[in-house]
């Protein structure tokens, strides 16, 4: 595959679990500063695609190029260091640490054993923690143990932890699951802000939310792309209505 201007170029990606193809020769391209939403019915392979990109699952065939670097052969932490951040479906935060510590751990300095032993807490670090905390609306809770946050706040904290890493591609798996209507609006605003200087890939079910954020929508079905394009175009697509959106 030749080099491209895309931040992420997925070509002919296939993964098979004991013969079942969860993702079937999928090709997808994401631009710089694009906010892409992937939708699709349960079992369409949405989460598997994220797993493949971030190295949690190894692909059977095909290629994933991030900034023209092949990702399929790298290990998870190398992919993260290349600039890919991933949020999990259920909030995945360190419940025993405070909000501040959660953000501090995610700071991309001192990532080796020796580096972490000699890591010094600088004023830049604390400025960065406070800046990100303000973005994800957690300034008042910096000293609170993360276990005590509400579900929505946990989701924001995990997004904040990813922002600490300053990734060029941010992948979010159902970021508004379990959130109140108000929190959803705030999250939509946050995502629109975030994608000003990075690409964002979101998996989501809530169509109202998708409308608010998506630049482009990809519909997955049985591991294959069913439709791709603007929200209006996809919503008008008959195949999409049949398998996913309903009549």
């Amino acid at each position: 595959m030749s080099n491209t201007d895309f931040i992420l170029a997925i070509e002919d990606l296939t993964v098979s679990f004991d013969g079942f193809k969860a993702v079937d020769s999928l090709s997808m391209y994401i631009d710089k500063n694009e906010l892409r939403v992937v939708i699709g019915p349960n079992g369409a392979g949405k989460t598997t695609v994220l797993d493949l990109i971030c190295g949690k699952t190894k692909s059977t065939e095909g290629s994933i190029k991030f900034k023209n670097i092949e990702m399929t052969t790298l290990s998870e932490h190398e992919i993260v260091r290349a600039g890919v951040g991933r949020k999990f479906q259920t909030p995945s935060i360190y419940e025993n640490l405070t909000v501040y510590q959660n953000l501090e751990v995610s700071y991309p300095v001192g990532r080796s054993v020796w580096g972490s032993l000699t890591f010094k807490r600088t004023s830049e670090l604390s400025a960065q923690v406070r800046k990100i905390a303000a973005e994800v609306l957690l300034t008042e809770h910096l000293d609170l143990e993360a276990a005590l946050l509400s579900h929505g706040q946990k989701q924001w904290l995990e997004i904040g932890m990813l922002l600490m890493q300053d990734p060029e591609l941010l992948m979010l798996d159902e970021p508004v699951a379990g959130m109140s209507a108000k929190e959803r609006d705030q999250t939509a605003e946050l995502l629109n802000q975030i994608c000003q200087n990075r690409s964002v890939l979101v998996i989501e079910h809530d169509m109202e939310f998708v409308k608010k954020i998506a630049h482009k929508v990809t519909v997955l079905h049985q591991g294959k792309i069913l439709a791709e394009g603007s929200m209006e175009k996809v919503q008008a697509n008959e195949k999409v209505i049949e398998v996913y959106l309903g009549h």
């Binding site: 932490h77 993260v80 991933r86 995945s92 025993n96 640490l97 990532r111 054993v113 972490s116 032993l117």
Partner: peptide
């Protein structure tokens, strides 16, 4: 040190530490 905080983080959510760019095994 940060190492100590990472230890607690790994005990809690190993996957998250790995996907924050740390080589958990080392």
């Amino acid at each position: 040190s940060k190492f100590g905080m990472l230890l607690l983080a790994m005990r809690d959510k190993e996957e998250r530490v790995r996907f924050s760019g740390y080589d958990v095994s080392s």
